[in-house]
Design a protein around this nucleic acid. Structure first.
Ligand code: SF4
Ligand code: SF4
Lengths: 159, 159
DNA sequence: ATAACCTGGATATTACACATCCAGGATCGC
DNA sequence: GCGATCCTGGATGTGTAATATCCAGGTTAT
């Protein structure tokens, strides 16, 4: 599991707490957790390509959420960062074994592959149930002053 | 996801098809898929430590299943190879952020961490539902002559 | 006694995640 | 227009973990 997923989710949450319509610089988002700015920027670009964030160039530019938090699932973010590939990559070792054929796609016929795929589907389904809005609501109910303190932290940030 | 998991599951399946009470050498199991023998041996050792296989030293030694296939879940094998760690390792970046405390275990309080953990639980539950016996049965119903051909392949193997 | 085989630590190799850098382009304020 | 700000994306460097090999030692069957 890529570490960038964690950064991306945190950044999305932080974006829900800044003033609406306000774009936030990659450098500022990185500064919040003291992350390497250039590298976080890459993750944000991936989120932008996935349609989760919109990016604006130039002064007063930066990133903002492309949709409402209710419409962004945790799975969306994970997929944007990790790529569309499945975690279980079947190496099709059956191909090397006796009775293996070059022209068979073992990923679809093989039992082990199917079993892994089913488990991964359950994982994805669970991540799709949760939205950024859900996370936001849970945080706010547990730490009611997080929105205010986050907003003011970004507002008072000196570069 | 470790590639050794695939090897281990295949090897367990193959072991269900050899004559009962017959131990199979790591080298033979590796030869079946042309895998690196020394490395597969490491995975088999892990399975032995986990109580999934029993190992016998000396001539006529090797590995055999420690329990009935019905009593070995796919999750057992995955856990034996991958170790007990969770796939989502929370780096607790909140600790670096404003308002972070040294003495808080963010892995338990944090919403993101919980969300990931829940998804991973669903994944594990799904893998625990399937046993080696289930895989075996599915393979045999699709490819009825696999047990015979596998058994005879091992029997006729020349080193 | 000898050969077959597992055990486990040390070591080499390789792939990939992590991280940085820079040239280019867009946008804003002046 | 001009300079400053900031995103874009490819090239590149770095470090760590997965992959793979090796060997010295222990166990067991014949
Ligand atoms: S049997 Fe399935 S899991 Fe194993 S190598 Fe073939 S496709 Fe992959
Ligand atoms: S908030 Fe949660 S996921 Fe993020 S660093 Fe803290 S514990 Fe980890």
């Amino acid at each position: 599991m890529n570490e960038g997923v964690e950064w991306a989710l945190h950044s999305c949450l932080n974006l829900t707490w800044v003033d609406d319509g306000q774009a936030v610089t990659a450098a500022k988002l990185a500064a919040f957790y003291e992350l390497p700015a250039a590298y976080l920027n890459k993750q944000l670009q991936a989120l932008a390509r996935a349609g989760i964030l919109t990016s604006t160039s130039g002064p007063r530019g930066g990133f903002r959420l492309a949709r409402r938090p209710e419409d962004i699932t945790v799975m969306d973010v994970v997929a944007a960062i990790e790529g569309p590939e499945e975690a279980f990559r079947c190496e099709e070792i059956l191909r090397q074994g006796p009775g293996g054929h070059e022209d068979v796609d073992y990923r679809t016929t093989c039992v082990i592959s199917q079993s892994m795929r089913r488990a991964e589907l359950a994982w994805r389904r669970e991540l799709s149930r949760q939205t950024i809005a859900d996370l936001k609501a849970t945080v706010e109910s547990r730490f009611p002053y997080t929105p205010d303190s986050t907003r003011s932290w970004f507002a008072n940030l000196r570069t």
